[in-house]
Design a protein around this nucleic acid. Structure first.
Lengths: 337, 337
DNA sequence: TCTGGCACTCCGTGTTCCCGAGTGCCAAGT
DNA sequence: ACTTGGCACTCGGGAACACGGAGTGCCAGA
């Protein structure tokens, strides 16, 4: 149905359209790519491609534009992820290495990705549920007030101020802290609820009400933050792309955490790149935009996802290369710190 | 030079232009406002106002548009800050009260402000330098690795991972922590460097290298974070305003922390509202935008600033009312937590 | 199966024209 | 000394129109 040459024509159309942002005609194709055939032949192929829904002409007597289906074929079969240059890799590495804490890693990552791809970059904070407890701290603030600080192996820190039901001496707090840490150190966050459940038994009866208060807050923290934090950067790149129409919708979507979450896709195992093209993504108002996403993580488990969002007519090979590279480096940084 | 009626005309022009976004002519003015005079008279006044640079006509035979100078006069002398409705106040209060930690307070604030004003909201995190130490924690992570956690009275938490020059037993760490807290508890962040300087003398000689490492990181933290963190929200509102031209520049500016800092203005004492109109602000590319900002803080000292950014043709009274109200409530929340 | 030729379609651009909103000025009225 | 109605003038923006060019589909011939 689609012989080799027709695929080459489709590839050429995508490439030209991406770089010129104008419907591409048969003559232009024949000139710019040496396909070894005449415009007339190309026209026939184009007719076939259009017949099957890979390209589309905005109106009679205009050139052709790839459809979402066309881009999909291009991404799946007609292109290869383009690796970054050595210089770019070095730049990424040094830029990310300068970060001192998790906030800064995420911040730098999202900016880097935005700059590299000239699109809008989106980065999800490393998931709480997949990481493990590195330390739990209970800090007395006032007579009946403590601050609970939870530190994970990815460097994320959660804090809550807790009002206690009674006055508690500092040494009792210290003991509680010791017990908590003994139980939870290295414990996967998803296992915390179970682990914590049997904890009150090990405490003197007098401490149990206080412990219960603290533990309930601890569990709350885990639940609440289950919906992860997401940041984005590079909105200015949207304005640069000739987005004009629909820009409003896109910006709105970007400010909805929930939408962003779903755009990045389900967190699975550290497989590879996910590409959602135009209408493939779950939100109207984001028709016309594509998402290239990847998981990242320390070691082999995926902690969270990151990606970029741009017009469907983006340079997929380059974008995919950048996303993949950044995801890898962030993983390394996280694993190392 | 400018009699009462000319001022009334200017006020009317600003109001009409803000609500219609179209140059306003003498007839429309006479119709919509009962100034008690005929269009011809208004034309004379307009000519005078234009003469003095308060209004401007885009081209002959168009209506008039306020200049930056005109808006300035309007804000300074012709308008009053419009208080929020009781319902709005309640909404703010309940919305902000739901926040559990500083991140969430800031996050909610910025979204609230964006929604309330339908502009881009900008909120600076409470300044580190003006707050005080509530607690310092040193958490052993591995043999020669600890995490330093600094908690301030505004609920802000800073963390750093530190590589130690030698292996240190946990009880020595605990001792160090106790000493540190004894020194620093309640200490203003700006006084930390001095306070810390004399600290090594109080420690046994063997602990001094370790202490030196930790203290240097602590000081670094303070310096680095001197440049504050800033977040914004509501970029979608920009697209809604007919910004079309220059939107790119505005978005770029928003992503530059430094620019945002300067836009919000110097942190001074908790005075009142700052309004920067169009060309009054320090950045070209933000001509055409105005900034309404206010300081906020717990008690009487200003901890940071927040504000909104929008087209010069914004509804100043309403915007100013919203900014002022939100600043106050955030202050209350911070003081209370 | 490919290719050159040819007639056709339609978008985008430039031109012209006209309408209306708005102005400035002036002379008359209070 | 202001204010007002009248009037001629200006200019931007939209509608109507023509036209060139890019691109197509189709067909007949290689």
């Amino acid at each position: 149905m689609l012989d080799e040459r027709k695929l080459a024509v489709l590839r050429a159309i995508v490439e030209d359209y991406v770089s010129t942002n104008e419907p591409v005609g048969s003559k232009a194709l024949a000139d710019r790519h040496n396909l070894g055939v005449s415009p007339a032949t190309i026209r026939n192929d184009m007719a076939a491609l259009e017949e099957q829904g890979y390209i589309h002409q905005p109106h009679t007597s205009a050139g052709r534009v790839p459809t979402d289906k066309g881009y999909r074929l291009f991404v799946d079969r007609l292109s290869q992820v383009k690796p970054l240059s050595a210089a770019e890799r070095r730049a990424i590495e040094t830029f990310l290495a300068g970060a001192v804490d998790l906030d800064e890693i995420v911040m730098r990552t999202v900016r880097l990705l935005a700059q590299l791809t000239r699109q809008v970059a989106v980065v999800q904070y490393p998931s709480l549920t997949r990481s493990t407890v590195r330390h739990v701290e209970i800090v007395p603030l006032a007579e009946r007030r403590v601050m609970l600080v939870l530190i994970t192996n990815t460097g994320r820190v959660e804090q809550r101020v807790i009002e206690l039901p009674e006055t508690v001496a500092d040494d009792r707090i210290a003991h509680l802290r010791a017990v908590l840490n003994a139980c939870l150190d290295g414990c996967g966050l998803s296992r915390v609820p179970d682990t914590v459940a049997e904890l009150p038994d090990r405490l003197p009866a007098e401490d149990r009400p206080v412990a219960a208060t603290i533990l309930s807050v601890l569990l709350e923290t885990l639940v609440e933050r289950h919906e992860e934090k997401i940041v984005f950067a590079g909105a200015a790149n949207l304005a640069a792309a000739d987005f004009s129409v629909g820009l409003r919708e896109v910006l709105e979507a970007l400010e909805e955490q929930v939408v962003l979450m779903r755009l990045l896709g389900e967190t699975g195992d550290l497989s590879g790149l996910t590409v959602r093209i135009g209408s493939e993504n779950p939100y109207t108002g984001l028709r016309g935009t594509s998402i290239v996403a990847a998981g990242y993580g320390a070691g082999d488990k995926e902690l969270a996802r990151l990606g970029v969002l741009g017009p469907t007519r983006m340079d997929y090979p380059v974008t995919m290369g950048a996303v993949r590279a950044v995801a890898r480096y962030v993983g390394q940084i996280l694993a190392g710190s």
